[in-house]
Amino acid sequence: MQTVIKGVRKYILMVAVTAILVALLMLFAPSTRSLSILVTLLEQGMAPALLGWGVLFNIKAGNWDFGVGAEVLIAAIVGGNAADALGLGIVGVVCCCMLAGLAAGAVSGLLYKLLRVPTIIISIALMLIYESVCGVIFGGRGVTLGVEYLVLASFPGNAVMLLLGFGLAWLLSSKLKIGYSIKAVGSNLKVAEDNGIDVVNTKAAALAIAGLFAGLYAAVSLGSSGVARTVSAMGTMGTCFNAMMCVFIGLSITGRGNVLVGIYFGAVIMQMIQMALMVFSFPTQYSQVVVALFVVAFMLASANTEGLRRLKRRRAAANGAKQ
């Protein structure tokens, strides 16, 4: 019983915040009062969560990787075309996209390892290169898949991909040494180094892992829409920032629960905000402002909660010392 209570306590914050926001939406927008809307929101959160989990590894490792959107693009175009040409079906699309994404991320990691230039510079340079490459390979046409590939937009395809991504992220972050190394490097670089962790290799690995999840996201996108077209002039930054916002919201509502679950709820909240803006006919040109305000509000709330907790702990310690 205690274990159950402990488990509920861990996840109460993220579930409660999401539930309250959904309840508010349903209260003020009657058209959203249906189970199908709730299911839609939960489904819409799946794809962004996949990319968010990849971005999380970078954030945890202290990397600034703006190239993850371009990695999605190149993974979709290379992986999608390869799988289609080889007739590998949707499983092939998933595998090829993941491989292409991993390769794109690995190049980023390798360059970081060899050049020792800040990841922000490497990632921006590679973003431009990947976007340009996408405009050249396969005649610059991107990728178009047939209807037989469109099985990842709805249940059970989307749920399978979510579970696959979650399993992979959980394995990497909680069961393998690299996950702990990334956490250690992100928490304190110097201490990690003193404890024998190869900081450069770890940060490079985080970049590669983000590429792997970019590939997974690319596969879900292709399996939902059947298309990916070339983008240029840093156009892929939007994809990267959206994933980052899911992570920031996720981190702020995770509490003591699993951060991967928190990011999924963060993605659901992001989709809920978009839905709310549509329902309330909010001018679309300001929608990013609203999303950004929400992210800031979540971060502020999270920072203040931490501050309050610290204050509480200090007072308790002081009281203990007095007694």
Binding site: G69, S221, S225, A228, V231, G235, T236, G238, T239, T284
Partner: peptide, 10 residues
């Protein structure tokens, strides 16, 4: 809804 400028089909 607004057309995304990152071409993201999602």
């Amino acid at each position: 809804y607004e057309v995304p400028n990152d071409g993201n089909s999602q």
